[in-house]
Nucleic acid binder design. Structure first.
Lengths: 140, 140
DNA sequence: GGAGTTGTGGGGAGAAATGGGGAAAAGGGG
DNA sequence: CCCCTTTTCCCCATTTCTCCCCACAACTCC
């Protein structure tokens, strides 16, 4: 289970540390993909496998399955830690999420997300609003 | 069950004691999150797990689930006591609740809340008014 | 009044964040 | 096919921060 919000510097070589608390769950390997929103999503390798299998099982037509496969696997990169607990952020993903020299690392239960500071600021507001709505609706 | 109101000093390292009476219930671990109001909410680890699972079960669309997950898990931090019964207040949460060098610790049944002095003063008035209304309505 | 508990502060060992060097590998052009 | 350039990966170094321990004064409870 991943949670918490951390801010890290991305150095000239594109390296980003992940929080020590996240490392044990990712030590066995991880997959980086384009997130649904403008972020990079990091899955533990086992979680990614489980996820991609369950998606493949649901996408029935051959055409949609091919597209799904391309979308998911085409933007997926494997990553692992260096001696200091950092991973290298692939150019394509870094550009997609518009991450400059600072990355915000967000725990999201069974995955980890990497955001640019600006995008995260905006998303946080939107996420909090959505959450408040859902929680309020419990009273009904 | 937590109740009562206590005031503590937050030292230079961001440490805050919790009342001795609260410690046994939190000894097995606790989760700090942004409260719905401008405060920090502390859940016993087990309570947080139960809560997050019940939320995940209710939020139907994938998009709203992602946002809810970000809002809940993104602002959650685990904490534990040092030898003197203190916890460290993460920067992000301290800033959110605008807690300076004094924190008001409030028992709230199944959770604990941390407030800045000013925000608590205002909330207390508002909470008392609301409580009076609700209690009055019981007679109807 | 005394012993234990609690609030508050600080120091130090170890971990973590950050930066850089250099060897090995990959890629491209002649 | 070879050589040169570029990138990747691993290791080392330094500063910062975190966590754990100790200390002490105030207070509580017996």
């Amino acid at each position: 289970m991943f949670f918490g919000e951390y801010s890290y510097r991305v150095d000239d070589k594109g390296r980003v540390p992940l929080p020590p608390k996240f490392r044990r769950e990712l030590k066995l390997g991880m997959i980086l993909t384009k997130g649904m929103e403008k972020c990079v999503t990091v899955y533990p390798a086992a979680e990614f496998k489980r996820l991609s299998e369950s998606l493949a099982a649901k996408a029935v037509t051959p055409a949609s399955l091919r597209k799904l496969t391309r979308s998911i696997f085409g933007s997926a990169f494997s990553a692992s830690f260096d001696g200091q607990g950092r991973i290298v952020l692939p150019h394509a993903l870094r550009e997609y999420a518009q991450i400059g020299d600072t990355a915000v690392v967000v725990g999201a239960n069974n995955s980890v997300e990497l955001w640019s500071e600006d995008e995260w600021k905006a998303e946080k507001v939107s996420a909090d609003e959505q959450a408040a709505k859902i929680i309020e609706s419990f009273g009904e």
